[in-house]
Amino acid sequence: MKRLMLFLPLILAVGVGIFLAAGIGKDPTRLESALIGKPVPEFSLANLREPGQTLDQSLFRGEVALLNVWAEWCPACWDEHEDLMWLANEKGVRIVGLNYKDEKEKAFSFLDRLGDPYQTIIYDPRGSLGFDLGVYGAPETFVIDAEGVVRYRHVGVVNERVWEEILLPVINRVEGKS
């Protein structure tokens, strides 16, 4: 018993070490969305390309889509745009854009320069839908199933690795279910 007690500090140190090591490499700024499993919040916002048209949550019914929150002022959105173009053109992914707290002219000049991977773009200059979605830092990308339910939220840049390792498995799972 006494001998075993001598190992107590070692056991404690190893235990604490494992506990702390598990936290290394985890990004604490990536929070799970509170909306997972819930439908896309109700909204009524203009279509960026056709200002006369009003879009609402029924936009997400019928087909799995990525909802990409972007803005011209967001540096990481410039970084990921090429990969969004690749997803839309090579992989045929349906991407809905949410132009978040942006100005129309800037949004258009951004798309003119980098290309337009979006099937539809929701224009949200005041960030109201962004707020309801719990967006706290663009870019964010949501996976939304054919019933319009939020299945996943990725905070940060989408690239080939994120697509292969995170988003594609989620989409496959969602499509297998629905």
Binding site: L31, E32, S33, A34, L35, F131, D132, L133, G134, Y136
Partner: peptide
């Protein structure tokens, strides 16, 4: 706010 941003 929790409904939008989580318990965080």
């Amino acid at each position: 706010l929790v409904d939008r941003f989580g318990e965080f």
